[in-house]
Design a protein around this nucleic acid. Structure first.
Length: 420
DNA sequence: TCTGGGGTCCTAGGACCC
DNA sequence: TCTGGGGTCCTAGGACCC
């Protein structure tokens, strides 16, 4: 039986989220910045039309911002996460099989549905009505072709935001006018290499011999070629697979030069990572700490180091993880540098149910610690204050720059917009 | 002055064993 | 002393995604 996939992708998601609560900005150019207000990570249609590229640093476009009256927002991930779950919830009402693929897109299984174009339009209208976010829908027999269809739905106005790409003739026509780099799974390096071989369009890639693709590149690109030819290699993954690693890292608003300051930052990341770990209900064995100077800073010396260690046994206990973190930090720390970024990575996970208790560990002590962690997480999420360990420090001068953050419209009572 | 953060998967190469 | 291939496991690094 042939499957039918749809991908629903929000248009300019972060920009649309900011606009949701500011109807006055409906047709005003608007962009959203990365952490530290560093570079552009989302743009409204108007900003795209001005030719401002994804990822450019803010300082390079100051003139254009002034000239065109562009509204600038710091990123507000709490808001985006909340809007995202509303979108996904709506989609789950419309289709029994949904794979949440990222914060702003989901794959749906539409096998067996009759009029797919109408169905796509219905999805689009429903999300707009329920959540207020515009989406585009791409429909095809494989995920890769569905992504391609979605691409076209976004690019061509006449499609009205929905493209049904089940017909082979349409697939061919679209691939012939699609540059190979727009294909899902073909990034910068592959594009360069394919171009060197004279492969410029998606259609040319689709015509390549799969064995040759595997030999020259990898099974990954081979799969892409198969998918472009209508052979589905990637199924719908409805249950989110367990995480393999958890990372917490940040660039600093200002360079850090002191041992204590950087150590505090690293401990804070470690505690955040441990919190995520507990939310996933997993235990970690491996802890990795990295620190580095800015790769863009040409005037001061560079330094980049990382250290990995193993806990004596799997744990999600912040105090145990912090203890190892500080030891690892001392291994990588070197005086005399201007540090721009640091992070903590947890890995080697297992589930709490099948962990072998150590011969030497005190069982009661372990249960006490688990209970303590629960209390700490509850307090820290209550919004009524924070509890932290020695080594962390809640008032942080390394904290991010966020000059233009929008209010917590959906998650804080005092920030809910008033209707007059 | 000012350049994001959090992931996954695959591959190559080294260590080690038989 | 010389010489061999195949297998597994681990790690680092690259490429990709959003």
């Amino acid at each position: 039986m042939t499957c039918t996939f749809a991908i629903v992708d929000c248009n300019n998601f972060y920009a649309s989220c900011e606009r949701l609560f500011r109807p006055d900005l409906k047709s005003v150019p608007l962009l959203v910045l990365s952490n530290n207000d560093g570079c552009v990570i989302a743009r409204s249609q108007e900003v795209k039309a001005l030719g401002i590229k994804m990822g450019v640093p803010l300082f390079k476009i100051q003139d254009e911002i002034k000239r065109h009256g562009i509204q600038v927002f710091s990123s507000n991930y709490t808001l985006y996460g909340d809007i995202s779950s509303r979108v996904m919830h709506t989609l789950e009402q419309l289709s029994p099989h949904v794979e949440v693929y990222s914060i702003d897109e989901a794959f749906l299984d539409l096998s067996g549905i009759g009029s797919l174009n109408d169905y796509g339009q219905m999805i689009k209208a429903t999300v707009l009505r329920h959540v207020g976010v515009p989406v585009c829908v791409g429909i095809a027999p494989t995920k890769t072709l569905a992504k391609l269809a979605n691409n076209a739905a976004k690019k061509f106005k006449a499609t009205q935001g929905v493209v049904d790409l089940r017909e082979h003739k349409r697939q061919k026509r679209l691939m012939e006018i699609t540059p190979v780099n727009e294909i899902w799974g073909v990034g910068r390096k592959l594009t360069e290499s394919l171009n060197r071989r004279g492969i410029e369009t998606a259609w040319q890639l689709a015509q390549m011999d799969t064995h040759q693709v595997r030999r020259l590149y990898s099974v990954v690109l081979e799969r892409t070629v198969c998918e472009l030819n209508g052979e589905s290699c990637l199924g719908l993954e409805e249950t989110a697979s367990a995480k393999q690693q958890i990372v917490c890292s940040r660039s600093f608003g200002e360079r850090l030069t002191h041992y204590t300051a950087l150590r505090e930052a690293v401990c804070e990341f470690s505690a955040r990572a441990a919190e995520k770990l507990r939310r996933e209900n997993r235990l970690a064995m491996m802890v990795n700490v990295f620190i580095r100077t800015s790769p863009f800073d040409e005037t001061s010396p560079r330094y980049d180091n990382t250290a990995t260690g193993k806990l004596s046994q799997p744990s999600a206990d912040t105090s145990k993880i912090l203890e190892l973190t500080t030891r690892l930090f001392d291994m990588v720390w070197k005086d005399g540098y201007r540090y721009a970024k640091a992070g903590v990575m947890l890995g080697d996970f297992c589930s709490p149910d099948n962990v072998q208790p150590s011969l030497f560990e005190n069982q009661e002590r372990r249960q006490e610690n688990e209970a303590l962690m629960q209390v700490i997480d509850t307090i820290n999420h209550s919004g009524q204050g924070k509890v932290w360990f020695g080594g962390q420090r809640p008032q942080k001068d390394w904290f991010m720059k966020q000059a233009n953050v929008s209010p917590a419209y959906t998650t804080r009572w005092s920030s809910i917009p008033e209707v007059r």
